[in-house]
Computed example of a mutant assay.
Amino acid sequence: VRAVARTASANTLLVSLGSHLPLLVLLSAAPRLLDRGALSVGELLGATSYLVSGVAPALRSLVAVLGSWGVQLATVLRRLSRSTPARQDTPGEARGPGGLTRTPRSFDISLTDVSYAYGPEAAPVIDKLSLDIPAGSHLTVVGPSGAGKSTLTTLLAGLAGPAGGRLTLGGVPAAEVDRAWLRRAVTLIPQEAYVFTGTVRDNLRYLCPQARDADLLASATAVGARALVDRLGGLDAPLGLDGPPLSCGERQLVALARAHVSPASIVLLDEACCHLDPAAEERAERAFMERGTTLVVVAHRISSALRAPRVLVLDGDRTAVGTHARLLEKSPLYADLAGHWVSAGIP
């Protein structure tokens, strides 16, 4: 905001000097120029009109555009200069002591007083959250909009590091986990699923390039995407820009099959089934549960919470963890959410 204010002030000064000042000089010198015959009345009117209707708007537009680009460029360069010397990894990818990374021996996840905010002056989206997610367990996350559900999955995926507290995978602090291991072990599927230009085979084995066709078809069948694959024309059929348009639900099925065939042992579904019907959503979730995967589901239906042995209710520093029945008793927010889902007819 301060940068924009400074730029706006500079813009006003430059426009005044570039257009208003020449006009004032011309008008001040006009009587002498007219008396000497160096300038006719028509020429004076033409010059005045040119400065007012031509030079001033053009200069104003030029300065505004350059000023806007300048602010954006300066901001990007400043952020790069702050981040590049401090670390060579992406956010949350700081190296361990001595620059070495470590490989966890298990897929257990533990959060102790973890906090995260989207800026130094912003209120924490996640505030002192403590939670254990044992390997192979199933957790559903619920809460109001803006409660930090997607932020939590971002932290668990290692795409950002906590601002406070401790997050460990297999006992290893998240900042010290080997990044190659993390990318193989954890898969995050967002609400807006990605489909790449290429064949169906290319899309399904994106996270597991060595997967056989039989594995791809088995995973597609498990999550309920086999009918879609057959309708498209099989594994050699084109997708993306070269293929037919897909609905949001069809793109989610492709992403779910891609995650299922991957070697990931921790799968994070951030409303990744929101465009599927309840039966298709249940089939996809059960496919990952039967695979023995650690499954964290950001829920948008009460049925997802009912299927999970544990439910996490996120609401700032007022979090609660427990079964569906227990949370109905001890968490007013969860009771309200469940009541809203039921009254709205969301199965």
Score class of each variant (00 low, 15 high):
Ser9Met: 10
Ser19Cys: 06
Leu23Ile: 06
Leu27Ser: 10
Arg32Val: 14
Ser40Pro: 08
Glu43Ser: 15
Leu44Thr: 12
Ser49Val: 05
Leu51Arg: 06
Ser53Phe: 15
Ala56Trp: 12
Pro57Thr: 04
Ala58Glu: 13
Val76Gly: 09
Arg78Phe: 11
Ser83Tyr: 15
Ser83Phe: 15
Arg87Tyr: 00
Gly92Met: 01
Arg95Ser: 14
Gly96Leu: 04
Gly98Phe: 12
Asp113Trp: 05
Gly119Thr: 11
Pro120Tyr: 08
Lys128Arg: 15
Ser130Pro: 00
Gly136Asn: 11
Pro144Glu: 15
Ser145Arg: 12
Gly148Ser: 10
Gly148Pro: 02
Ser150Trp: 01
Leu167Cys: 10
Thr168Gly: 02
Leu182Ala: 15
Thr187Met: 08
Leu188Gln: 02
Leu188Thr: 03
Ile189Phe: 03
Glu192Phe: 03
Gln210Ser: 09
Asp213Phe: 00
Asp213Gly: 03
Asp213His: 08
Leu217Trp: 00
Leu217Met: 10
Arg226Thr: 06
Ala227Ser: 14
Gly234Met: 02
Ala237Phe: 05
Leu239Thr: 11
Pro245Ile: 03
Cys248Met: 10
Gly249Met: 08
Glu250Leu: 08
Arg258Ser: 01
Val267Trp: 04
Asp270Gly: 09
Glu285Asn: 02
Ala287Ile: 09
Leu295Ile: 00
Ala305Asp: 09
Arg307Met: 15
Pro309Thr: 08
Leu312His: 06
Thr319Trp: 04
Val321Gly: 00
His324Ala: 12
His324Glu: 07
Ser331Gly: 07
Ile346Glu: 14
